[in-house]
Structure formats: structure tokens, C-alpha cells
Amino acid sequence: MTRYVALLRAVNVGGTGKLPMSELRAMCESIGFAEVRTYIASGNVVFESKLSETSVKTKLERRLETYAGKPVGVLIRTGAELAAVLAGNPFRSAAPNRTVAIFLDAPPPADTLASVSGQQTEEIALGKREIYVHYGNGMADSKLKIPAAKSGTARNMNTVAKLAEWAAGRS
């Protein structure tokens, strides 16, 4: 069995995509995932499955679409991949609540940094299938736009650390 982390897009954020975490756990269990745990109400779930990453993603997205009546994007990482995202954070010395990893399905396009607009004090770096952003002045007033991040979902480093811990079976 592989331990996976699923990160849902646009769930319980800004009044959209309401999904109780108890419902998410039940959905995951109904499609055969084991040891299901959710973390905070923004669509983070850790579970085990014998299925491949692609199969896990497909099954969960189909189940969520049936529930929500519209597509809900899901980004999947293994526990090892999530640990690598945490270890690869180029802004480790910055406040973890002001640093995010934007998770993508594929590597960031080569023109990712060139297509950014509205950048002020934010620092940006590319990962394997992530874009790291340090919001030195916080996210609230940021005007940063990263077109390559449109289909991704962001989690701050505190959340990434907790999910990596759970995915490693340390909590």
C-alpha cells in the first residue's frame, strides 16, 4: 500500500466549494482508500491505497464531481514526494505561514517566471511539480499573478509539514 496525500482545489476557501471533511473522509473510504485522515477544512486528505497515483486521482475526482455537481481538481503526492517538497523549499529560513508550495500536475512550464505579473517583494522559485512563493509582506495585499499556477493549489509550509508528517506515519 502506498500512502498518498490528496490536495483539493478551491474547497472551503472564500465561501466556495463547501465540503465537510467528514464527507471527504466518507468519500475516500467508499472508493476503497484506507487509513483516511483529513487535515483542516481546506481539502487535505492522507490515505493509503494499492492503486497508482493516476488511478487514485481519477477515482477521487469522479467521486467529488458526483458530490459537487462540477469538477473538483485534485493534486496527488505520495508521502515521499511531499517530504521532498518540504525538503526542497528554497525559502526555509522564511516564515512558514508566508511561504507556499503551489502544487501542479506537471513540471512548471519553462516560461513560468517570465510570465509572472504584479510581483513586488514576493520571491518565486520552481520545484519539480511545484512553484514556491515567499510572500514577505503576507498574501493579503499581494498583486502577484502566476499564470502557470492557475490549475494548481497552494498550501503553506506549516500545512505541508503536517501532511508530510502524517504521510510518513509519524503522527
Score class of each variant (00 low, 15 high):
79 G>Q: 06
49 S>Y: 02
86 L>Y: 13
135 Y>H: 02
23 E>R: 10
101 A>G: 03
145 K>N: 13
170 R>N: 10
46 V>Y: 04
126 L>V: 02
62 R>K: 09
117 S>G: 06
80 A>E: 15
170 R>M: 07
65 E>G: 10
153 T>S: 10
142 S>V: 12
150 K>P: 08
109 P>L: 02
75 L>T: 08
12 N>R: 04
62 R>H: 14
55 S>W: 00
44 N>F: 07
92 R>N: 08
127 G>S: 01
129 R>I: 10
6 A>N: 01
63 R>M: 14
96 P>C: 02
130 E>W: 09
69 G>N: 05
22 S>M: 11
144 L>W: 14
102 I>C: 11
97 N>M: 00
102 I>Y: 08
84 A>V: 00
120 Q>T: 08
133 V>P: 08
125 A>G: 05
138 G>H: 11
109 P>G: 00
156 N>A: 14
111 D>Q: 08
17 G>V: 08
128 K>D: 14
161 A>W: 02
37 R>M: 12
128 K>M: 13
142 S>Q: 12
89 N>M: 09
106 A>H: 09
19 L>I: 08
98 R>H: 14
139 M>G: 11
137 N>V: 05
127 G>R: 00
71 P>C: 03
61 E>P: 02
160 V>A: 11
23 E>D: 09
120 Q>C: 05
66 T>V: 11
83 A>H: 04
121 T>D: 10
103 F>D: 01
75 L>M: 13
139 M>A: 09
52 S>Y: 01
102 I>H: 06
40 I>H: 00
165 E>C: 06
162 K>W: 07
87 A>S: 14
162 K>L: 03
38 T>E: 04
23 E>C: 05
63 R>I: 14
25 R>M: 11
91 F>H: 04
105 D>I: 07
55 S>K: 13
76 I>E: 06
107 P>I: 02
69 G>L: 03
61 E>L: 10
74 V>N: 01
78 T>D: 05
110 A>V: 03
116 V>H: 01
64 L>K: 11
33 F>T: 03
71 P>N: 05
148 A>L: 14
44 N>P: 05
120 Q>D: 09
132 Y>A: 09
134 H>M: 08
102 I>K: 06
131 I>Q: 02
115 S>A: 15
11 V>D: 04
110 A>W: 00
36 V>L: 10
135 Y>N: 03
70 K>W: 13
118 G>C: 03
144 L>Y: 15
153 T>V: 15
80 A>S: 15
151 S>V: 03
135 Y>G: 04
90 P>Y: 10
152 G>V: 15
36 V>W: 03
171 S>I: 05
116 V>A: 05
158 N>K: 01
170 R>G: 11
69 G>T: 10
136 G>S: 09
139 M>K: 15
73 G>S: 08
163 L>P: 13
124 I>E: 04
48 E>I: 01
107 P>Q: 05
37 R>A: 07
136 G>A: 15
140 A>I: 12
71 P>L: 08
